[in-house]
Amino acid sequence: MLQTKIHNLVLKNPVMTASGTFGYGEEFADFIDLNRLGAIIVKGTTGERRQGNPYPRMAETPAGMLNAVGLQNVGVETFCNEVYHRIKHLDTNVIVNVSGSSIEEYCKTAAMIDALDNIPAIELNISCPNVKKGGMGFGTDPAMAAQVVSEVRKIYHKTLIVKLTPNVTSVVEIAKAVEAAGADSVSLINTLLGMAIDVERQRPCLSTITGGLSGPAVKPIAVRMVWQVAHAVKIPVIGLGGIGSAADALEFLMAGARAVQVGTANFIDPTVTMKIIDGLGDYCNRHGIKDINEIIGII
């Protein structure tokens, strides 16, 4: 009833976890059955180990939070040699979010992940707002976005999802560019560039001054962008941004998302993904829906 597809990926249900909010999944194993998830998208992975930005990296804002973690991660080699072997047996789609500062770095990482049997897809992160080089720089210009996607496409043979930034004049233009360059799916939105100031200390709340806004505050923007992109591209769209309930997830599905990702809400309730999956099933039962795909894109 809840099964859905993203390119060649079959998802048990449309609920995925958003990169950077779910670690490698293991962090949540005490709280939920990871195998019930449609997919797990693990922490953004780069060509080399990264330390990320200095503390403080987080600030709570009304109905949201700013972060400036800056892609702290173990690097692709440690991921392949160590982390992968701990999570490869999970009975769900484990997807690696691939980030970088150069096309070469994206390609190196994607090629190493391509060789891992139990990773059926990557999510190419051309939208991280918290790194000085690369990241969002690739995602804000249609030509650069197309270039990095087409280079990765040459060496990556499985499902290629491209994660888009909302910090652009036209997200539709970027989505069309990456579709033309060979993306199998797009996911959106990454965080919105934001800023907060501690007025008592007269200093920015984040060490990097600006950071990425996530949480319920961004949801209406995300739903609007998903709706715009879903009407403009033929490849499946994955929606995220402020999802914390089944009703939130349904908004994205009705706006045209074939699947959704849950991010910040995992921090508030580590079991929230299970509640959303159950809630989607209840909704279908209540409305006599036999297949969740019946409601995808009805708006």
């Binding site: 950077g20 909010t21 779910f22 670690g23 962090e27 949540f28 922490k43 990320g52 503390y55 403080p56 990296r57 987080m58 939070m65 972060n67 973690v69 702290q72 910040t264 995992n266 921090f267 580590p270």
Partner: peptide, 10 residues
């Protein structure tokens, strides 16, 4: 934020 080593904020 998370308290369980997922968000890497602290």
């Amino acid at each position: 934020a998370c308290g369980i080593g997922a968000c890497l904020c602290c």
